[in-house]
Simulated assay, not measured.
Amino acid sequence: MKYLVMVQGSQADYDAMAGKASAHSPAWSEKDLQAMFAFMGEINNDLSESGELVDGNGLAEPAQTRFVSAGQDGRPVITDGPYGETKELLAGYWVLDCESLERVTEIAARVAQCPVPEGAPEYPVVIRPIPDNGGGDV
C-alpha cells in the first residue's frame, strides 16, 4: 500500500532556518541545520535501501507559494504567499510503499524524532493512505 507521509512548517520556521529568530522559533545555527539534513538523509537512504521510498522532497518556503482559484467570472485568481491566515503548510513529504499501516507509522515516528533547536515548534507527522482505486495518476 502506498502512503503519503507529510511534515508541516510555517514561514516563521523557514525564516528561523535562515537565522532569523521570532516569537515562534529560535534562529537555527549551521550546526542545527546540518544535524537536520544528516538525520533526514539517513532516513532517505534507509527507505531507498528497503525499497519503500517512491518519492520525497522538502518544499520551498511558503513565501514562494502561489494559490490559484476560480474567480466569480471564471478567470483564475492568483495570490502569492506568505499567508498570515495560514499557520502551517506542507514543508516536505515522502510517498512510501509499505507493507502495512504499522510499518509506515514506525517510519513516521522516526521522522518525528528529527533534531530541532530547543524552543523550536514540533509538528505531528501526518500519514495519509493513497488508495489504489485503479484511476491512474492524477
Rank of each mutant, 00 (worst) to 15 (best):
D97Q: 14
I43A: 06
Q34G: 08
E99F: 01
R128Y: 04
A108M: 04
Y93V: 00
F37M: 14
P117L: 02
Q11Y: 04
E30R: 12
G135T: 09
S29Q: 04
A63M: 13
E102M: 00
D97N: 15
V138P: 15
W94A: 03
A18S: 13
G92N: 00
E49Y: 01
E118N: 10
S25M: 06
G71R: 08
G9S: 07
N57S: 15
Q72S: 13
I107H: 04
R66Q: 15
F37V: 14
L33G: 03
P129I: 04
K87A: 13
A70P: 01
Y123H: 15
Y3K: 07
A91D: 04
D13F: 05
E106M: 11
K20N: 14
P129A: 09
S100G: 03
D132W: 01
L47A: 09
L89Y: 05
L4P: 03
R66F: 08
R66V: 15
G51S: 08
V95R: 02
C98I: 07
A21I: 00
A60P: 05
V111M: 06
E52M: 15
E99A: 15
T79A: 11
A18N: 11
D137S: 11
E49P: 00
L101M: 13
Q113Y: 02
I107K: 03
S10T: 13
G58R: 04
V77Y: 03
